[in-house]
Design a protein around this nucleic acid. Sequence first.
DNA 1: AAAGTTTATTTATAGATATGCAAAAATGTA
DNA 2: TACATTTTTGCATATCTATAAATAAACTTT
Lengths: 159, 159
Amino acid sequence: MKNKLNRLNAIRLIIANERIGSQDELLKRLYAQGFDLTQATLSRDLKQLKVAKTTAVDGSYVYILPSNPLYKRITKGKAVREQQVRNGFVSISFSANIAVIKTRPGYAGGVAYDIDEHELPSVLATVAGDDTILLVIKEGCSHEEVLAHLSPIIPGMEM
Amino acid sequence: MKNKLNRLNAIRLIIANERIGSQDELLKRLYAQGFDLTQATLSRDLKQLKVAKTTAVDGSYVYILPSNPLYKRITKGKAVREQQVRNGFVSISFSANIAVIKTRPGYAGGVAYDIDEHELPSVLATVAGDDTILLVIKEGCSHEEVLAHLSPIIPGMEM
DNA sequence: AAAGTTTATTTATAGATATGCAAAAATGTA
DNA sequence: TACATTTTTGCATATCTATAAATAAACTTT
């Protein structure tokens, strides 16, 4: 419950659902959830997540998730290029043989479809609501395996 | 050539076409174009334009324009101009103090938002339907003024 | 044109964020 | 396990950004 992946997910969730205007503010929210870190680390996390700071309609500053263009690095032979992908992925967390994937509102169906389409060896099935996907993990497969299989499908997830 | 509107347009153009990573950097570019201002003013300009600072694919920080309008630089011979990449704009016509802007189906709201966002001195308000925007022109402003103010926001309009 | 009002700008500084470096933790390898 | 390598983190601080207060400039109104 205290690793980096969980923390990054928590950051995404907080930013997706609240108006956060500074790192110190976000730091307090994270602390309230049991995460213990410094502003320096948070700065690096936000950089990794490509979170942006902009101005809200009311004139205050807010952090926003990189909903729009997300880039994926594609290596084919020695050539490296970047491909823009669109997707509503927000976070993923696990509980036993179930993974809960949160997406931006309305995106769950689309993301679940992408996952199903690939017939991953670690995924038994998915059920999608509006912003949540329940993913049933196949018997004997680890969470790491699931992450490894999902990351190429859901860019921005590999962290 | 030294008023605020021109400066804001210059800022948009620079940010749209170069990788600017800090206000001081942007300040230098503006200075090179003959704009004389301080970092404090620039900070307020960026706030007004709702420019965001985020992390680029290469890990550096960059300023980006509010997601909606996307600009690109078009070079034809020696002439360089900017054009909005994806835009629903179709046509504009005038009747007294009203401008009627037609867009592609579904784009009216987005385009109207872009217009509102800039708080143009010649625009009193906009109302958007699905493919039509009614724009109320401020008392005493000419159609040419409105066009002049809109064109940087809706490139391709002059063509 | 003078007086009042709003908007824009600068200066100075407070506040927020990024980062070099060293240490610690995690991961890989023999 | 011991050792090497990579990743993560905190500390301290440099860098960057926002804003209060004062002033100037641009408009309005009388």
